[in-house]
Simulated assay, not measured.
Amino acid sequence: MMINDFNSFKIFRFHSLHHTQFRTNYSLFMPFYDFMYGTMDKSSDVLYEKSLTRPEESPDVVHLTHLTTPNSIYHIRLGFASVASKPYISKWYLRLMWPLTSSYMMLIWICSRTFVLERNHFNKLKSQTWVIPKYRVQYFLKWQNEPINSLIEEAILHAEERGVKVLSLGLLNQASYYSFTFLGEELNLYGKLYIHLNPKLKIKVVDGSSLAVAVVLNSIPKGTTQVLFRGKLSKVAYFTAIALCQKGIQVTTFCEEEHKKIKMKLNTKLGDKLALSKNYAHKIWLVGDGLTEEEQLKAPKGTLFIPFSQFPPKRMRKDCFYHTTPAMMSPTSFENMDSCEVSQ
């Protein structure tokens, strides 16, 4: 089961009549006063019921993401635009709203259904963003793997039924934890699990790795001859390392395990482009989850940190430079966007 429209609350349709019947339905958020003073339009209930009977729009593309932190509920349309625009920066007033945040968490836990966050149009392409009602921390709990995979598979099958052509797995819905040994096996092999379980699927399930690799490569300054890899390796990390070696850029690590894993992915002809370093003197760091604060402090002044993971490292240095996670600007023709994907 899935909640088809997170935004179809009667209260938000109430005020729309005011724009045609301007002497009624003045209230935007508190229709109680229109009831009290007799300015409620008599056709309000009829209009609302008619709006519910409209045919459901079938998107061409669905992006399947999830909640990140408890405060990420305020990144959506019912939240605050200022919070959504800076999802990694904590606001002091959100602490005062913790009772409301806790209520949201309880509601999400009780419902536990994927919901539609946004409906967008990109020229003639119709897209929607669906949200798995799980927080980031839950993806790191082994006993949550099965419930999460069930929700993702259910969403894929629902999208198939509605004629969706492409479904992209966002954030940790695409995760394959090569380095999180406490999780055991990978979560879903970047969507391959669902294709294996449902071999007759017509919908294309993608993870956006190729595009993320392109963004990371484009973030590396021209003329760079050497980069340092650090953090838990992922599909994006491996393909980025391969692409850099093919371009003649030396890839180094100071962790022997990471060095072995990257070497296994490389063609033997590119082996000389991979090195094991014993110092922190590199100025370009490609980083993933697992980069420690201590390691950041050892980086030389002016180091550029470029994340290849879904979430950026904590900024510990004011004398260094930090890129955002792999992302691109939305074109002006992309309509109705209210929240980011980390909403990345």
Rank of each mutant, 00 (worst) to 15 (best):
V213G: 01
G38C: 07
C255E: 14
K298L: 15
K301W: 02
R54E: 14
S27L: 00
G184L: 06
L64K: 04
S309D: 14
I242E: 07
K10M: 09
D207K: 00
T240R: 05
K202N: 12
E256I: 15
H75P: 04
K142A: 13
P331V: 05
A327V: 10
T39V: 08
T292K: 12
I156F: 00
S176E: 15
L187G: 01
P331H: 03
N4H: 07
S82I: 11
Q246G: 01
S82V: 13
E258L: 07
Y322T: 03
V61R: 02
T101W: 00
I242N: 04
M30R: 09
E146P: 04
N336G: 04
P331Y: 04
N25L: 02
E335F: 06
V206P: 08
L274G: 06
A81R: 15
L107S: 09
K42G: 13
C255T: 12
M329C: 05
R162P: 05
G163K: 02
E153D: 15
D41Y: 06
I220W: 02
K301H: 09
R95Y: 15
P300T: 01
A299C: 12
I110A: 01
T68E: 05
S150V: 14
K301N: 10
A155C: 07
I195A: 06
K86N: 13
A237M: 05
L169S: 04
L274D: 02
W143C: 10
H75Q: 06
T332C: 09
K298V: 04
S209N: 07
T53W: 06
G290D: 08
T181I: 05
K142Q: 13
I76E: 06
H63Y: 10
T181E: 07
E341S: 14
E49K: 14
F115A: 03
T69W: 04
W143E: 14
F14Y: 15
A84F: 08
Y139V: 01
G163W: 02
S179P: 14
I249S: 02
K202E: 06
I203Y: 01
Y238H: 13
I3H: 03
A214H: 12
S168E: 08
A275H: 01
K247T: 02
T325G: 03
A175D: 10
T39K: 11
S16C: 06
Q144V: 09
E294L: 14
N279C: 12
T240P: 09
L270Q: 07
E153V: 08
N336Q: 08
V61Q: 04
E154F: 11
T69S: 10
F182K: 11
C340D: 12
L228K: 11
V216F: 02
L183Q: 10
F239E: 13
P70M: 01
G223Q: 10
A175W: 04
T240W: 01
P59C: 00
L291C: 03
N279S: 15
D272P: 05
I132F: 07
D45R: 04
L291G: 03
V116I: 06
S343R: 11
Q344Y: 14
S234F: 02
K134A: 09
H259M: 13
A175V: 11
M1R: 08
F9Q: 11
W130T: 02
H158F: 07
Y322A: 04
L67Q: 00
A237R: 00
S210K: 13
P331A: 03
S277P: 10
